[in-house]
Amino acid sequence: MYPLGVGGIRDIVPGMSTEAANAGRLRARALFRRWPTVAGLAFAAGYVFRITTGLEPAPILVAALVIYLGTAALGRPGAAWPLFFAAAAVIVLTRAALPGVQPSWVLFALGVPLLGYGLARRAFRPLWGLPLQTLLFAVVGGLAAIGPLLGAETGGLLIAAGLLAHAALDVHLLRTGRLVPRSMAEFCVVLDTALAVAITAVVAPN
């Protein structure tokens, strides 16, 4: 009646449970490895549903540029995440303490001393380090900082274009492992792309 025997059946069931548990652990590890993507989506969600003019994510773009500039100026990839949390604190505190001041302007101003430090230590190499980040900071960051002054449609589209340009840089940095940790590059790819799409969806129909 029991070709496998009672013991055989007992051997099979635990084996199946073990396989299911192993599969669960593998899925958990895969999800953990993608934590920058999950974090980027979660962070973007905090902005996406508040975008009404397309100008709201401007501080995020300026913050990203300042973080990368600061990392290049310091010559320490590990500084990227501490700079990220510092920039986030600046945005929150500026909005709380200085309601009439754009956080983008404050972040842009704070980027200048970082640039000065990088120049003082003559961090002119490699070219994709401080030289490129300075150019992006000056051009893209400047446009993002004045974006709110150009009106919702023009300013929003400029910010969306800047976010997509920064996302393209992040893809390159993610592949090469340069400048910032790959976790930061992956996080920014997701965040920048999500915000750019959201801005376009709000502004384009107008």
Rank of each mutant, 00 (worst) to 15 (best):
L119I: 02
A204H: 02
F187D: 08
L164K: 07
P148D: 02
V62S: 00
S104Y: 05
P3I: 10
A165Q: 06
I51M: 12
T134F: 05
A89F: 12
A44E: 07
G142R: 12
A138K: 10
A152K: 03
L61A: 00
L179E: 03
G5P: 06
L127G: 01
E56H: 09
A109N: 11
H172P: 06
G100L: 14
G111D: 04
A168Y: 06
D170K: 06
V112K: 11
V180G: 05
S183K: 02
A39G: 13
L173R: 07
A160H: 03
I12G: 04
G111K: 11
R175V: 13
A30C: 15
L132I: 01
A30L: 15
M1Y: 14
A123L: 11
A196L: 02
A161L: 12
P113V: 11
A64S: 11
R95Y: 06
V13H: 10
V90L: 02
A86Q: 05
G142Q: 10
D170G: 03
I159K: 00
G151F: 10
L115F: 13
L98K: 07
R34G: 14
A20Q: 14
L83H: 05
A58C: 06
R182N: 05
S104V: 08
R25L: 15
R175S: 13
L55A: 00
V48D: 01
G100P: 10
L136A: 13
I51L: 12
S183E: 01
P36H: 13
P77Y: 07
T18P: 13
E56G: 11
V189H: 04
W35I: 14
H166G: 05
P82N: 01
L143C: 07
L127A: 04
L132P: 09
L115A: 04
A168V: 12
T94Y: 00
A87L: 12
R25P: 13
L26F: 15
L163E: 02
P14N: 06
P113S: 04
G118Q: 03
I67R: 03
A201W: 04
V62I: 01
G70V: 02
G7P: 13
G7D: 14
V106K: 03
S104W: 05
A196V: 03
Y68E: 12
Q133M: 12
L83I: 10
L110I: 07
A86D: 04
T193K: 02
A152F: 07
A196W: 05
V197M: 04
R25C: 14
G147I: 09
D192H: 05
V6Y: 04
A194M: 12
V66M: 04
A89L: 14
